[in-house]
Amino acid sequence: MDMTNEQIVAAVNEVFKESFEIKQADLLRERHLFDDLGLDSLDVVDLAVGLQQKFDVKVRDDPRLRGIRTLGDVYDYVIELSLESQSDKKPV
């Protein structure tokens, strides 16, 4: 995953627009996924699938998903995945 933070935020937003039909204006980092954006437990599974397909990562069994509450948490989580993937690529 070789993307800037801005590109990651834009790509996460695309997942929310494509999978959950949420308008760009509502995609603010402090928005709570359940309370503000209307997602539920089924949508969280589909969020994981959406992230897997958008970023070519495997996240479905990642326990960190359970701690995600806001859209900002999703941005931060994917940024963290990006850093991890870059770290994995560094020569030992």
Binding site: D46, V49, Q52, K58
Partner: peptide, 10 residues
């Protein structure tokens, strides 16, 4: 790929 990880919940 005989893989269910990209199967959506719906």
């Amino acid at each position: 790929e005989r893989n269910i990880t990209n199967l959506t919940s719906t």
